[in-house]
Design a protein around this nucleic acid. Sequence first.
RNA 1: UAUGCAGGUCAAGCAGCCGCGGGGGCUCUUGGCGCCUUCGAGGAAAGUCCGGACAUCACAGGGAAGGGUGGUCGAACACUCGACCCGGGGAAACCCGAGGGAAAGUGCCACAGAAACAAACCGCCUAUGUGGGCCGUCCCACGUGAACGGCUCGCAGGCAAGGGUGAAAUGGUGCGGUAAGAGCGCACCAGCGUCGCGGUGACGCGGCGGCUGGGCAAACCCCACCCGAUGCAAGGCCGAGCAGGAUCGCUUGCAGGCUGCCCGCCGAGAUCCAGGUAGGCCGCUCAGAUGGAUGGCUGCUCAACGACAGAAUCCGGCUUAACGACCCGCUAACGAA
Length: 130
Amino acid sequence: MPARSSRRGRRLSRSAEFERVYRQGRSVANRHLVLYSFPNESTGELRLGLSVSRKVGGAVERNRVKRLLREAFDGVAGELGEGQDIVIVARPEARELADSAGLSGIESSLGELLEKSGLRRDGDREGDPA
RNA sequence: UAUGCAGGUCAAGCAGCCGCGGGGGCUCUUGGCGCCUUCGAGGAAAGUCCGGACAUCACAGGGAAGGGUGGUCGAACACUCGACCCGGGGAAACCCGAGGGAAAGUGCCACAGAAACAAACCGCCUAUGUGGGCCGUCCCACGUGAACGGCUCGCAGGCAAGGGUGAAAUGGUGCGGUAAGAGCGCACCAGCGUCGCGGUGACGCGGCGGCUGGGCAAACCCCACCCGAUGCAAGGCCGAGCAGGAUCGCUUGCAGGCUGCCCGCCGAGAUCCAGGUAGGCCGCUCAGAUGGAUGGCUGCUCAACGACAGAAUCCGGCUUAACGACCCGCUAACGAA
């Protein structure tokens, strides 16, 4: 438990790992994002993968969407259980959301998906003995 | 000074807080964690259109095919750059030009027009040949006549000046000339050839000559010069597992393991080899990732949401995209003073 600090966990690195999350994981979506999740006890870590296709925009816009998604995910990572892989796919509408509402817009959209998926550990704050 | 040019710089700025990637250092028993420090996108990083480095493969020499380049000189070739030449634009500064060859051949030239490469629609001519009509002259003959002449209508023929079409119709203007005309002749201009001079050269200037018949070669083509193929997913190193080979061992356990030795126990495999998959490392950088860092929030200022846009082996060029701000130099027509 103390091994995982407050910063983000590892990331998904192999396309095979993405495939496993896509095929075997559960998914929830709204008009901006799609969120896949798959419990992975072997690593004991919370890992994130991002997929932002060319349909979202050019390199600058895709970078911006990815950065905002990482930032937003960082903010809520403490509320999620360990030992699972998460993949967030950005839809083209995510670019408009990032342009118009910025980080807060992405955060609320991600929070909506987490609520829908039930991934939040309800009332769990024992990981942060402040 | 406005205006217009040419070259260059920047790419909102500052502060605070929270974060991210690489390097270095400190702490630490190692790994790790933590802390400190430093560096961290562009002028186009883009398109991937050229060239080079680098890498692997191929390679005696020559040719063909294919591709590229195309005023000259220089930087070894090419690309490109600099200077210059020629043509075009501009008042100028300056800008633009795939700028070799159309008497080697083939092809194309829309619409319009007679015709787009060698011709004649309208038109001009009757000098020349020939047919008809009328008139006149001529006469041993007075005519339904020969010959000659004139006028006129044709045919053959001559002309390309003028009209008209077009982006373009085979030089322009003037005089002479002719039946009418025409570089047919002459003068000047333009073009071509040739000679001389200047220049490394593209070319320029001058003299002379006979007057030469369109455009397109980013149409095929011809000429000159250049070019091996593939590209960092190049390529190099390490290397699980599975299968393969070699050696040793396998009822008498004595190879091997527990363990450095002895005993004891377990015990059917053990060790090595090259190739090489998954995977890893290098290539890969004083930005240097390999699911890919360079960001977010707040406040203030300029301003009024701040353009185009994000490195992926490196370097040089080309092309394309795009708000603006500033610096330096040049030009000064019209207009203002």
